[in-house]
Every structure is written in C-alpha cells, then in structure tokens.
Nucleic acid binder design. Sequence first.
DNA 1: CTTCCTTGGAGAGTGACACTATCCAAGCAT
DNA 2: ATGCTTGGATAGTGTCACTCTCCAAGGAAG
Lengths: 215, 215
Amino acid sequence: MRLAELSERSGVSTATIKYYLRERLLPPGRPVTATQSEYDEDHLRRLRLIRALIQVGRVPVSTARDVLAAVDDDSRDQHSRLGAAVEALPHGPRPDEADPATTAARHTATDLLRRVGWHFNLGVAEHSGAFRMLVAAVAALHRLGYPCDTAHLLPYARQAAELAVVDLDLVEEYETPGEQVEAAVALTVLYEPVLLGLRRLAEAEESNRRFRTGS
Amino acid sequence: MRLAELSERSGVSTATIKYYLRERLLPPGRPVTATQSEYDEDHLRRLRLIRALIQVGRVPVSTARDVLAAVDDDSRDQHSRLGAAVEALPHGPRPDEADPATTAARHTATDLLRRVGWHFNLGVAEHSGAFRMLVAAVAALHRLGYPCDTAHLLPYARQAAELAVVDLDLVEEYETPGEQVEAAVALTVLYEPVLLGLRRLAEAEESNRRFRTGS
DNA sequence: CTTCCTTGGAGAGTGACACTATCCAAGCAT
DNA sequence: ATGCTTGGATAGTGTCACTCTCCAAGGAAG
C-alpha cells in the first residue's frame, strides 16, 4: 500500500507518518519507483504501536525510537531485549541526590527489595530507571511529611509481584521471541493507564463508601 | 520570610516562584511594604506540594492550579472536594468515539465495574476522567490485538480495590477535612510512580526468573 | 502528448508548555 | 548618597510533536 492508504487505515495524517519516517520511528517502505514506496501490514501494525506508545503511554518520540530499536534488536535474547526496551522508557526526572530525603528514600527502596526477595533487582537493577522512579516518588512523599517506609510499601510490592506473574503469563502465550518482546513492551506501557484508572475508580468507590453524607 | 528565603528553603528559583504566583498556583504573600511581601510555612508547604505534583506527578501547571483550587474549596465536604480534585488531574487524551475499538472497550469497562461491584462508579463515574483513561487504554490494547476482556482485568480491579482500602486508611489518619483532602491528592498522585516503578521492577525480577539463560 | 494530481523528501513554521531573563521603580542597608 | 534587594510585569528561550509549504518525479485521463 502507499502512504495515503497507510494514513487512511491507521487514522494518522500523511504529514505525521512522514515525520515518523524522518525520525526513524517507522522503517522506510520498499521503494517501487524513484518517488514512491510500498508499505505492508507490518508497517501498519508498527504505526499503531507507535501511536499507542505516544498517545496512550505518553512516551516522547525520541524515547519511542529507542524502545522500538531495542524491540527490533535481534542480536540479544528476549530477557536482554525486554530489559533494554523497558529501560529506554521514560522514568521521570532523576532524584535530587543533594537532598537528604533522596538518601532516605534510597534506603527505604533498597530495604524493600531485600524484604520482598527481589535479589535480581538488588544486584542488577538498583541503577535502573524504574528504581530511580521509585526513589524520586518516595523522596517527594518524605519531603511532604507523608509516611512511606518499607512497611507501608510492602503490600504494594507484593501486589506488583502478583501482577508481574499475570503479565508474564500473558507474554508467554506468544510464540516467537520477537512477538514476546513486542507484547511485553505493549503490555507494560498500556496496562499502566489501566492500573492507574482502576486505582482512581476504586478510590472514588471507597471514598464514597466512607464519606458520603447520608442518603 | 521573604521571597529569597522561600526560594532557598524550597530549592525553587525566585523566578519560578514568581511564575507560580503569577499563575495563581501559590497564594500571594502578606504585603508588608509597597514592594515586599511576607511568606509563611504554609507557603513553603504548598510550594513543595506544587513541585511534587509538577515534577514527580507530571501534572501540567494549569491543571495543578485547578487541583489546588479544589483542595482549598471550603464550601464542600471532603468527598466532594476529593472528587473534584482527582477529576481535575490529567487523564490523557479522550478516547476516539468514532473507533469501534472504543465502543468495545467501553462495554468491557462497564461490565468490569458491574462484576467487581463498584455500583457508585457504575452510576456516577462512567463519565469521569479515570473511566475515560481506562477506556482509552483498553481500546488501544484492542486495536493492537492484545487480549483485554473483563476476565483479564478482574485481578487488576480486585487489587486496585485492596489498594484503595490501604490508601483511604492512610488518609483517615489525618484530623481535619483540609488535611485529609490534601493527603488524598498527594497520595493519589505520588503513589502512582511508586506503583509503576514497583511493577516494572517486579516484571524485571519475574522476567529474569523465567528467561535468564543458564548461569 | 499534455495537463492535472499524487507521491515522497526536506526545511521551515506553529502552538503549547514551563520556565527564565530583563527591566523597572520602590525600598532598605551602610 | 549609593548600591543592593525586592516584587511586579513583559518578553524571550528551549523543547516537543507535529504541520505547512515547497519541490521535482511519476502516473492517470482525455
């Protein structure tokens, strides 16, 4: 198919597709003449993934390029590819190391990983983006005076461990390593708004249950 | 204290504080002469909350103003204030109603609320931002061909319900309705990166457990 | 064959956003 | 008196995700 058809089928304007091609988010089509290229179903699928990452997952364009490059990197096994792809995702601002609240938060987080038994993370992933995201958030809570120690975080960590089992079961339903890595990235990013939306709905429900006035 | 001291104690530049004052994120100080104002501990606390919302919670400035205005609105009870504040938070782009995947996602989400017994949400909050966020994410998963029906979402919803109990217990430790609403907003926003960070760490741990090659 | 439209590539322009820099007059400090 | 700081207003900066405009080459209709 041509650019116009790719645009129509995906709902993305030709100008935006050209922009993604320029930014190397989308691989170029197969040139059929000097001025025209042919695109296939893989391009359509990739384009839909790009839109989902950027619009729903709020991933910046340059970051999405890095994530997709890691997904396509055939020279590694799936664990390594998945790690590289998730590591490329945005993790918010890095914590302010000058702030004592950050040091305290780092201790809390390290202690939590030890207590919940994530020894892989203890060894390898303490410098990961996900760990930094956790530390920055815990530090912000400390600065505001809200309690956020290991005991408070444990139930959240245990639930995260349960969710990870469900998530990875889903991923393992796919056949090829390539499909698995793409699924892992898509599920990691797209289930995040699902989790946050459900939490806010559950809080509204619980708040209503506790605070509603009469009626 | 003066602007310079507020800046030093909060770590926020005077230029940025002036910007927040201009944007009505921070209430003005008490004018002490024609060219100087006095700020107090409440200003410092509010400023820290603003920074946490914007930097850690990635809330846009104009949105943070609306959230804080809802927090300060003494004319409502805490349930209503909390609802207004959370509703003012960003929920991502609104789903594309022209897309059949959105219609399907809306059915899935409605069915999920019914099955998990959130009748308050079923009646009131189907037009809430959190619900739209959920629908948009489920629709994106549908478009990419990933399974995401009521059965898949149920464990996530049940966990969200458990988390909401923990969260509201924390909120109820505070005395005044004002403190409770501020705590609810801060905990809602700042626990989100905690949850996402823990999930990513748990996935890395689980992925390592399943896919690591030898050693 | 000619005229018109479409295509892909490249560069510049747009609007939103979160600051940031510059001015300025009024005041306080020495 | 003089120099620095303060708060207020205005304009500028850098980033981001597009979006617009232009262009030459390539079909399509008559």
